[in-house]
Design a binder for these strands. Structure first.
Lengths: 215, 215
DNA sequence: TGTACATCAGTGAACGCGCGTTCACTGATGTAC
DNA sequence: TGTACATCAGTGAACGCGCGTTCACTGATGTAC
């Protein structure tokens, strides 16, 4: 991940050169530290080493910056999920479990992105691009659900969209209740990953999907 | 639900009489309108028709008020869940589905409470009372999970705590992704209630619980 | 290759605003005698 | 039953602060010729 063509750290000269990226990074840092609520335009500017008026060259306002962070978050999220899914190799179930882990790993490793995407109050459809990015990320999950469903006997096959929504909701629920550091302070008799994996396995068994019927 | 012994609406005289309750109600109103982020101590005071210094007689600061709102929210939540559960009558599965609906109904009808409880950044253990209230609400869910599990053949019976966590996570995921008005703007091919009910049914089938084996 | 000029991305000073918080105060309530 | 007094719950003025936003400006960059 490189933000600039030839950045040596530290702004030099009158022009910053990569202020837009720097502001996004500042936002991520601040959101990670104090939550998406306690993050201000002015502080992001300060954090980027720039006057408080400078950000207006790149973002309409605080919400615009936040939405941009969410947009990038969805893009990263899509990449992470798609990489984990890996086209369902070696078999759909194994790949699905891997994707579940990737989901939680993303929420844990990138709490600021996750927060901007789902908990910042930015409406998911505030921008066509944002909506599209969100849908692309969900499409990965949906593709996985489709592959899993396609392995079931056609009779009584559930709609893949519903399966995808169930898995999404459960993943999101676990991530937001237990997924982040000890900030949430909710203790658990098992790891979030184990909880999700077990839940998905039970759910799939309920669908009639049997482990080991792969690829 | 009565907040005062003999309130006729509108503060009269020098003393408010029920400022503490009025501030909580103001907080609920403001949170419902603008989310738990955009709610200030000063505005709550204004909303209650009182000087900005008055709230300090009842709450240490904004976070203290917010935590109090969350506490009351958990108490209401526990009541709502317990009422829906109704000791598992007429049978555990029926009662469980009813409780799922009650979960979503609460999140929808009391978004301010729900937000204070789960999305406001108030740490669940910030206060012993808050933690206890949260645990009491969860205990209802756990009791339901225990009853459901007790109807399974002892061999291969899953830990009830895990079952309770799965149901909680799914419910919370659905509530926070799809559960509130059109604020979230995420469209769904079915209602949140149907989605949750279907998910729980599939999950229970995966556990080997068969519908109709009631009471 | 050099010069003029347009454009771009930043400055920094200034503003009004609402918030959180404090303070000495005061009106109302309740209680002791 | 009446009076004195302690306590409680509010006032309102004041403060410092940081935020969002604007403005005319200026330094740097890139391009046309």
């Amino acid at each position: 991940m490189s933000w600039s063509k030839d950045e040596k750290d530290g702004p030099r000269g009158y022009h910053h050169g990569n202020l837009k990226e720097a502001l996004v990074r500042a936002a991520l840092e601040l959101i990670a530290q104090k939550g998406s609520a306690g993050f201000t335009f002015a502080e992001a500017a300060r954090w980027a080493g720039v006057s408080p008026a400078a950000p207006y060259r790149h973002f309409r306002d605080r919400d615009d910056l936040l939405a941009n962070v969410a947009l990038r978050g969805f893009e990263q999220f899509e990449i992470a999920l798609a990489r984990a899914w890996d086209d369902g190799r070696p078999d759909a179930l194994t790949a699905l479990e891997r994707m579940g882990k990737a989901y939680l790993a993303f929420a844990r490793a990138e709490p600021a992105y996750y927060s901007a995407m789902f908990e910042s109050g930015v409406p998911p459809a505030s921008t066509p691009e944002l909506r599209a990015a969100g849908e692309r990320a969900f499409a990965v999950l949906r593709e996985a659900a489709e592959k899993v469903c396609s392995q079931m006997p056609p009779k009584g096959r559930p709609p893949a969209l519903m399966v995808a929504l169930h898995i999404w909701a459960t993943s999101h629920g676990i991530a937001s209740l237990f997924g982040r550091g000890d900030a949430a302070q909710r203790t658990l008799p098992m790891s979030a990953e184990e909880l999700l994996e077990a839940g998905v396995l039970v759910y799939l068994r309920g669908l009639g999907v049997t482990a080991g019927s792969g690829s």
